[in-house]
Design a protein around this nucleic acid. Structure first.
Length: 869
RNA sequence: GCCCGGAUGGCGGAACGGUUUACGCAGAGGACUUAAAAUCCUUGCCCCAAAAGGGUUGUGGGUUCGAAUCCCACUCCGGGCACCA
């Protein structure tokens, strides 16, 4: 057989699949549905990155396998096309972002099609298309109607030289990325979405979904629910009293609160200005803090800073002592009440601070006796013992674990959990739940985003939404894409567009000139895919119910062993949503949370059928450059997928990206290693010359391995262990290559298994077997399609359970856990038989000779261990 | 700083608490060839040791008959940190 020419074959099959429409998802088809989703790309000017095909190939494998298993599969693609890089490029070149976007999308489309993904291109959506963002605006109006969109003063990054608001990413070391000028903070009215109102629902919903565990944990921590207490501290000075409220999750440690700390932004500081003796110093400190970002504030390598407010004191409500009040930037204004009671005895940060400034430390919680061995130092575990709490005992001297109260008056001896609410009650405090989650800043002073469809009416004295019939509110063409000198979006410079009439009273009104953030379009795109051409609704309930519903109890019809990786059906409710969503770990907090929030809201107003948008979420690791660093233009380690496809072919690239390492971990690229998978495909190709129509499936050892491989690959795909699935197929092909003749059936089974990974070459080989031609006549094995039909439409292979069971194994004989010999025995060998074998074995005997045998451990079908120690 | 991952040969990696290194890359030896490429076969694979053997899964400790795997502490690397997508 001639060598295989990937260039010809790949184009041929891509055309054929498209022409026959084999990947078109059919609405309301009687087959069970399966919705497979990947994160749609941002069409950057650089084109496709080798990272994209990693996630896309993985879901393509799953989508193709599901089709072969009899599902009606929806595997859509689109473009998340609003965003900063395009806008910045437009500013530089003066070209309209819409034009640039169009070109980029055309390029991405071409590149994606070369990879042979089984996308349904008929459903492609583009977020910057008015027919799409019409509905993004519509959803925003629903938020607005329901009181979840509101305006609030927020600080933004401001470059005083460029006179432009900056995204966090554009701020490098506190300076403007472009001009290097120090960035200032400015107050600006911003549209906010009240995601915090959904904090509990977003937390609750995590119980019903099958997400990769670390994504769940990240979301939980991001929402950061904690139950604590609000406590009042009285502030006193010579002629004045006031109250400061603090939030604490550890009210049980109140007796140990030896000072208080206020966030530099805390409003009381200005109120008590006249009482503060060192005001100059305090003011100076607050000014320096203003220049730091939040992260910098948390980052000051354990070096805490702060200033005492001299002249005023607080009173600890439990001990009635006067304690000093400090201002320090490790306390954030946005969390809790912006003020804390500091308990250096039991909080690491407070301890650091107290140590630096010589403040009093008092221990009020003692580790329970029995929980921790006593140590001479009286604090910190002795080296040889594990910490009793399992964590949190670092931080020098602060003990943060559980224990019994001491130095706490009448509460001494109580368990700290019990003491929490008793102490809270005794000082008149209240229980309070807080979240780390903050409301979502939803407006941008930028051009390339969805216009916010609201107008300010001077007469009505409020924001009025434009009628839904007037949507989409199109993004008008502007001359310049720079934000204006005042920091407003370029839209603000278009008087004609801005000046309008109030839709309610008809009076003069002004349009909102802010646009939406890039997150908006990606928060609901999975819904639009269900009904992408609908111009009456964002998607019809009927179609949403079909694609987002849960018609089958499991996401796979295969039962038993083969269903590895499919979650069991939920007890007490039917799950709905996208059946399987794969994306990057970098999106597991923001995008995932935002889109869950939008879906939950849409569910609450009755326009989508499921509470949660995604049933199952998995993640892929990023592909690093050959140097092990993140790929970037500046490092010069970027690999262009086009070059690889041209040289090696799409099948090889797909296979390589699946083989290079564990799917969920970051792996460095290695062009050298591509040779391995390329040789493998070449071997599969050459194997075609060995098939013989007379050879029934008789090559017994290969047959057993074949069925084992079917089992392995089937399970590994479900678990996204693509690298080991490919390794198993390589082993199989190596064995098959050793045979003189191969039955058609075994070759077909191999092609079927490999097809989702390398669709073009397998389709071609399948076609060659089934095309009547000399030497390769079509037989009729296993009732598969004869002589016609494409491989992508054939049923997925089943294995014969009788053939995957081993009859013999290598029994490991150990002495004290060390391997001393291996014996080939039947799988069913009994403990007694194994003992006899082990004790009679000469190689083994010398290792326990003359010693007392204390125990013999037998693991069926695996090993026997003789213990003498 | 906080939250979440990761660390196994020269390299990418494999390994339900049970033979560390499957599969692949690179290397060495050989076959074929006028030659090269390609292909095929064979072969180590890390340290100590002449060998028997012993050690070795980032470091240190623990649990266990037995730990890469479970627990504790630490080091380094990666992702996220709310206006990059």
């Amino acid at each position: 057989m001639k060598k295989y020419n990937h260039l010809k074959i790949e184009k041929k099959w891509q055309k054929k699949w498209e022409k026959e429409g084999v990947f078109v998802a059919r609405d309301n088809d009687p087959r069970p549905k399966f919705y497979a989703l990947i994160e749609f790309p941002y069409p950057s000017g650089e084109g496709l990155h080798v990272g994209h095909p990693r996630s896309y190939t993985a879901m393509d494998i799953i989508a193709r396998k599901r089709r072969m298993e009899g599902y009606n599969v929806l595997f859509p693609i689109g473009f998340d096309s609003f965003g900063l890089p395009t806008e910045n490029y437009a500013i530089k070149t003066g070209r309209p972002p819409s034009e640039i976007t169009k070109e980029n999308i055309a390029n991405f489309t071409k590149q994606l099609k070369m990879l042979g993904f089984s996308f349904d291109w008929d459903r492609a959506v583009t977020t910057s298309d008015p027919s799409y963002y019409k509905w993004t605006q519509w959803i925003f109006l629903q938020f607005f109607k329901h009181g979840l969109a509101y305006k609030k003063k927020m600080t933004i990054n401001w470059c005083p030289k460029d006179k432009i608001g900056l995204a966090n990413e554009e701020v490098v070391d506190g300076c403007c990325e472009r001009c290097g000028t120090a960035v200032e903070k400015r107050e600006k009215e911003q549209w906010m979405l009240a995601i915090t109102k959904y904090a509990d629902k977003l937390l609750e919903g995590l119980k019903d979904v099958d997400y990769i565990e670390r994504a769940k944990v990240q979301q939980e921590n991001w929402i950061g629910k904690s139950t604590g207490a609000l406590l009042q501290f009285t502030v006193v000075s010579s002629q004045f009293t006031d109250k400061i409220e603090v939030f604490t999750t550890r009210p049980d440690t109140l007796f140990g609160a030896t000072y208080m700390v206020l966030a530099p932004e805390h409003k009381i500081i200005k109120n008590v200005k006249l009482k503060i003796k060192n005001w100059d110093e305090v003011e100076k400190y607050i000014d320096t803090v203003k220049k730091k970002t939040e992260q910098e504030r948390m980052n000051v390598e354990r070096e805490k800073t702060g200033v005492e407010l001299k002249g005023i004191k607080a009173i600890n409500p439990a001990t009635k002592e006067e304690i000093p009040i400090w201002v320090a930037d490790y306390v954030l204004a946005g969390y809790g009440t912006g003020a804390i009671m500091a308990v250096p005895g039991h909080d690491g940060r407070d301890f650091e601070f107290a140590k630096k400034f010589g403040l009093k430390v008092r221990e009020v919680v003692s580790p329970s006796p029995g929980l921790r061995p006593s140590s001479p130092a009286g604090r910190g575990g002795s080296k040889n013992f594990p910490s009793p709490s399992g964590r949190g005992e670092g931080d020098g001297g602060a003990y943060t674990g559980p224990g019994i109260l001491i130095n706490s008056g009448r509460f001494n001896g109580l368990a700290h959990e019990t003491a929490k609410w008793k102490i809270t009650e005794s000082v008149g405090g209240t229980r309070k739940v807080t979240y780390k989650l903050r409301d979502w800043v939803f407006s941008r002073q930028r051009y390339w985003g969805e216009p916010i469809p609201l107008v300010w009416c001077d007469k009505c004295k409020e924001w009025v939404s434009i009628p839904e019939s007037a949507l989409p509110l199109k993004l008008p063409k502007v001359e310049k894409y720079q934000p204006t000198d005042t920091g407003e979006s370029p839209l603000a410079a278009m008087e004609k567009w801005v000046k309008t009439k109030c839709p309610r009273c008809g009076g003069p009104a002004r349009r909102e000139t802010d646009t939406m953030p890039n997150w908006a379009g990606s928060s609901w795109y999975f819904l639009r895919y269900c009904d992408p051409h609908n111009n009456k609704e964002f998607a019809s309930m009927e179609k949403l119910k079909y694609w987002m519903g849960s018609p089958s109890p499991q996401s796979s019809p295969i039962k038993g062993e083969e269903a590895i990786g499919n979650p069991p059906p939920l007890v007490g409710g039917v799950r709905g949503g996208v059946d399987w969503y794969n994306g990057g770990m970098e999106h597991t907090v923001l995008h995932l949370l935002y889109s869950r929030f939008w879906n939950q809201f849409l569910y609450d107003i009755g326009v989508v059928p499921t509470r949660e948008p995604y049933k199952k979420r998995t993640s892929h690791g990023i592909i690093l450059g050959e140097d092990g660093e993140k790929m970037s233009k500046s490092r010069g380690n970027v690999v262009n997928p086009d070059d690889i496809i041209k040289q090696y072919g799409a099948d090889t690239l797909r296979l390589y990206e699946m083989f290079m390492g564990p799917f969920d971990q970051a792996v460095p690229w290695s062009t050298k290693s591509i040779a391995g998978v390329q040789r493998f495909l070449e071997k599969v190709w050459q194997l075609g010359s060995k098939i013989s129509e007379t050879s029934k499936i008789s090559e017994t050892s290969v047959e057993r391995l074949l069925h084992k491989t079917i089992k392995k690959v089937t399970g590994d795909i479900e678990a996204m262990k693509f690298n080991t699935a490919i390794a198993a197929m390589m082993t199989l092909v190596n064995e098959m290559s050793k045979e003189d003749k191969l039955s058609v059936t075994s070759y077909e089974l191999l092609l079927t298994l490999l097809h989702p990974f390398a669709p073009h070459i397998t389709e071609e080989l399948w076609n060659r077997i089934h095309r009547p031609s000399p030497g390769l006549r079509p037989p009729s094995p296993l009732g598969r399609g004869e002589g016609e039909g494409m491989l992508c439409q054939q049923p997925w292979s089943k294995y014969d359970p009788a053939l995957v069971k081993d009859e013999e194994i290598e029994l490991v004989i150990q002495v004290n856990g060390k391997v001393r010999d291996l014996v080939r025995v039947s799988v069913d060998i009994s403990e007694e038989e194994a003992k006899v074998l082990a004790f009679q074995n000469e190689k083994v005997a010398k290792w326990f000779h003359g010693q007392e045998v204390k125990d013999v451990i037998f693991v069926k079908g695996k090993l026997i261990n003789i213990v003498t120690q």
